[in-house]
Every structure is written in C-alpha cells, then in structure tokens.
Design a protein around this nucleic acid. Sequence first.
DNA 1: TGTATATTTCGTCAAACAACTAAATGATTA
DNA 2: TAATCATTTAGTTGTTTGACGAAATATACA
Lengths: 116, 116
Amino acid sequence: MAITRAISDPSRVRILLALRQGELCVCQITGLFGFAPSTVSKHLSILHQAGLIQSRKTERWVYYRLAGKSAPAAAREAIGWVHKSLGRTGEAARDAKNLKKILATDPAEICRRQRC
Amino acid sequence: MAITRAISDPSRVRILLALRQGELCVCQITGLFGFAPSTVSKHLSILHQAGLIQSRKTERWVYYRLAGKSAPAAAREAIGWVHKSLGRTGEAARDAKNLKKILATDPAEICRRQRC
DNA sequence: TGTATATTTCGTCAAACAACTAAATGATTA
DNA sequence: TAATCATTTAGTTGTTTGACGAAATATACA
C-alpha cells in the first residue's frame, strides 16, 4: 500500500518519469518542477520509503535513481506500469524536454540560480 | 492518474481483491466491510470511473465485476498488479474467508439484515 | 397506485495531505 | 574554526478525502 499511495500523487509520478533519463539530484528536480526544495525532498522521501527509488550521496549532492534489481518485484513492476501507462502524456513530454536543458547545465549552477 | 488515485485507498484495494471471486452486489460488499452503503457506493463509483470495474443492473441489484477484455490495457494491468502484489496479505485472506460466508447467503437476506 | 427495497447523491465533519517558510543537519571550503 | 552550501525536518495553512446520515432515485411488489 505504500506503493499505491506513493504513485497516487501527480508530482511523484512526474518524478518517476523524469528518472527514466537516469539519476537526478534534488536541485535538478526542484529546477524542473519549480517547487520548493523541501516539497521535492518530501516527495522523494515517500517514493524512497515505498522502495521505488534509491539514493546515493556524493559531495554536496544526493542523487536519486529508480529502484533496480535489488528492489522487490512489486516495486519494479509498479515502476514499469507507471512508465508504460503514464509516460506518454503531453506533460511527460514537456518535462522530458525541460529536463534536457537542466541536464545540459552544471548542477552547481542550478543550485546557485535557485539559491537552494 | 484516475487509476493510481483509485488504488491508493485500502478499502478500494480490498474491493478489487474481493471481486476476484466474481461479481458482487453493493450490499454484499457492504456486508463484507461493515461500511455504510453510501460509502461503498462512492468507492465503487471511483473504481468505475477509473475503468477498473464494470457494472450490471438486474432487478433490484447492481452487480460489479472486474474490468474485462474490453477495458484499456492500463486498467487491466493495474488490476493484475494489485492482485499479484497486494493479494497475499492477511487481510486479503480474512476478507476472502468472510466473503465465502456472504456468498453462501441470499443477497436479499443480507440486505434485510442490514436494513439497506 | 402506493409501499418497500437497493443504490446513489448531497451535505457535513474530522483526518490526511501537499504546499510553503523557517530552522536544523551534514558535508565541504576558506 | 567559521562560513557556505545542499538537503532534510518541523511547523503552519488551505485543500482534499473518506466516513457518515439524510434525502433522492429507481425498481419490484402488494
């Protein structure tokens, strides 16, 4: 049930879709959505608790990525369903486009820009 | 997103699991859960709007069943995930056990008993 | 036709939730 | 050591949600 609750929020689904491109740090997701860092952090915490994403801390940044082979089948299959069934919307395409711009920028500059 | 919202509530998941046994009328589900009929009706409405269940009206009763072949793939796959990933809990087993008793009783008597 | 009966709709209330700001934490750099 | 930076935690606020009871709808029966 932690999984169903986690994917019931549109912003968290957007995060799961964005992470298809690879791992992202908190400030990159913040830059993508325009939410406050604390809001993004909370969403990531819920996704993490549901076993849908994993994290890696390096230098100043925490990177989040989709749960891999080590994750329970229920989580992996939920991720697959989200990508397949919710990944073709206009919003997803728009996010992917904006994400490209963000990925072309150094994370440090993104953080400086949003003063996070 | 209607699907993710629909399966984010534990009671609605319980309904989807109960419907594995076959179609059920509103008063049978009401008897299984102990909720007010209006509460069950609302849950069924949300599941129906998400395309996860279908309904059939006959005589005085409305029977609900899991969405079949005609339903969109996203809905059918969500149902499959729910059954596979959430159908093995103790609560699901308890519900299935209680449901057997309810199925052994005439729907009319169930309704009379709960004055619905 | 009138009266049950089964379900749905409406209105209300308390609990849960997502967003924010501000403060705390933890790690790096001067 | 002090300062800065990225993230998290705490606390607040407005909105959504799930529960109920009462009224409305629709169907069957007397």
